[in-house]
Design a protein around this nucleic acid. Structure first.
Lengths: 331, 331
DNA sequence: GACGAACTTGACATCGTTGTCACGGATCGG
DNA sequence: CCGATCCGTGACAACGATGTCAAGTTCGTC
């Protein structure tokens, strides 16, 4: 900046004014400064400015997701980024892999860089460790999973309702021996989906002792193995509810490997690309990750703009998409 | 930091030393400082430190991809992030949507934040605008597409070779009327893939006048429309080579809609999730986005660690995955 | 026991920018 | 035509950290 000032023959403060588009700089001076800046390829250093600036905003957000390689996270990320870029805000993205340690590591990395706010999916059992940061004024918006041990904004899917809808759909098609195949019990979303499943099973008067409930399947491969064993067992289910997209894909692969895809019904939680073209096509309870991202960033901006109302949790509805696999009747 | 120093009863420089894990601080002092820091929930401010630090490293990278919602970008991103997190480096991610303007916007946003390096997929016709930044010492690694107008490291797929392999595969299965269905001609990768296709067609002695070459299909919908019109035309191809994953999905949907998926062969460039379970399963030339990301970040770290050798372009091989759709013979 | 080396510590300038304030000149209303 | 206001501008301190350097302390060796 000093160099630009020297080249333009003005004070550094004037350069600062021009670079920030402040008023009350003559057109001639503005032109001279801009020319000098262009000649020297000068770019403002936002961080140096932040040091002295009163609002201390880095115009940077931290986004923590399960994995940036997961399509659900990708859609959310994209929505966040689209809104952020319009306000000149850059987004740090990080994957925590449902690993509490990695979550803490990423959050620390974000905080060290003085992000203006955090949008996060968490894997820790409690997010109380963020309390000091929150009271220090950093807005937090939790996505996908509601926070524990801290009161903050959240945007989540209607996990229990969606799971119940999927389960009811199977029950309405005549099933009573429905297996639950799901992700880690440590995850709040997985627990909620299981709860929705169980409650619906209960409402239908089906004894829970009769049904298999498999948990802690954290990858496609694990789900494949588990479902393979399940349907080859002695009391195989006539229908399966899978509570997460990787698990759904594992289940699809297992059923097809055994040639059972037309005999055992399947409803998945969360949509999967191309699943509408399979034979049978997969009935799912679709989430709306893009919408979750949109609402989260909207909430974030409201907070950054001074909204001090009580934290709220927004529930984004899921949608049952009937395609075939969920309408198979028990044989 | 001042507060921590005061609470611990030491000078700020000592706090700085403890927080940065420097040697030559007594155990007792270290403990006192750490305790004070914990009590005040103090986190280092990397940007303030950068101002004075000699290396001026923000320990931050900028990653520009087509879209963070695209699985190809997601896999690349994940590989970059995994390596970065180990070095305590945070990653800004941004989508440029093959929009040159958005590319410039994102790059500016990154540079303003003084990233230590840029890993980028570009949409501009020339990246010469990065020359000053490069000579200023910021390492650049281009991914997916080789740079134009600037000499820098790059990691790309063997686009022409892969396309030729796919085309040869179709020719070997008896096809001579093979359509090319591809993305925007403005994209270097799309041009390369088309070149590979054309050269292979030429090698087989097939007159180019006979074959349809559709371009500028930038979404699944556009590809769907184009393929629908193509195969309904008066001289429909017996095989299709689609040069990008969204285009492939559009083509799949079009063929199935018309019930032609078992009559017209299809080979896609870039793999698509679940495409192995379709009927027929889709034969593809798979890229290796994770590997591209790994090599790119490796290159980046080498540069940051002082490697001043001449820029190189690493070509990551593609793999033909035979699944069914590409082995349909002409009727 | 003395002397130098090694260790521990803090004062202070400084990084690039913005907030504050003050100054001089132009403009305006009566 | 004069005083009041407004506009354009720059000098300077300060933001939170680190580099430099010097001072005080401890330790080891002959």
């Amino acid at each position: 900046m000093k160099n630009v000032a020297a080249l333009a023959g003005v004070g550094i403060k004037t350069v600062s004014r021009v670079m920030n588009g402040e008023a009350n700089v003559s057109a001639a001076t503005t032109a001279r400064v801009n020319e000098a800046a262009a000649q020297l390829n000068y770019e403002l250093d936002v961080h140096a400015g932040n040091l002295k600036r009163l609002d201390r905003r880095s115009r940077t957000l931290g986004l923590l997701v399960g994995s940036v390689a997961n399509p659900f996270s990708g859609a959310m990320h994209r929505a966040v980024e689209d809104a952020a870029i319009e306000r000149g805000i850059a987004v740090f993205a990080s994957s925590m892999d449902d690993n509490p340690e990695r979550e803490r590591l990423s959050v620390t990395a974000f905080l060290r860089r003085r992000v203006d706010g955090l949008i996060l999916t968490t894997a820790t059992s409690s997010q109380g460790y963020l309390l000091p940061e929150q009271s220090h004024g950093t807005p937090l918006v939790f996505v996908d999973r509601a926070p524990v041990g801290i009161d903050a904004d959240a945007v989540v899917s209607d996990n229990a309702i969606g799971a119940a809808t999927a389960t009811r759909h199977l029950i309405e098609h005549g099933h009573r021996n429905i297996a639950y195949v799901g992700d880690s019990h440590a995850l709040q979303t997985a627990r909620e989906r299981r709860r929705g499943f169980q409650e619906e099973i209960g409402r239908a008067g089906i004894p829970t002792g009769d049904i298999a409930q498999l948990e802690d399947l954290h990858s496609e491969e694990a789900a494949f193995e588990a479902v393979t064993r399940l349907v080859a067992g002695e009391h195989p289910p006539t229908a399966i509810f899978s509570s997460q997209n990787l698990v759904t894909v594992g289940a699809i692969r297992a059923l097809r490997r055994l040639g059972l895809q037309h005999r055992i019904a399947l409803v998945g939680f969360d949509d999967v690309e191309l699943s509408d073209l399979l034979e049978p096509a997969i009935t799912v309870v679709a989430q709306n990750p893009r919408r979750i991202g949109e609402l989260a960033i909207e909430r974030m901006f409201a907070r950054l703009d001074g909204d001090h109302s009580a934290p709220s949790t927004i529930v984004v509805p899921t949608t049952l998409i009937v395609r075939g696999s969920g309408e198979i009747r028990p044989s």
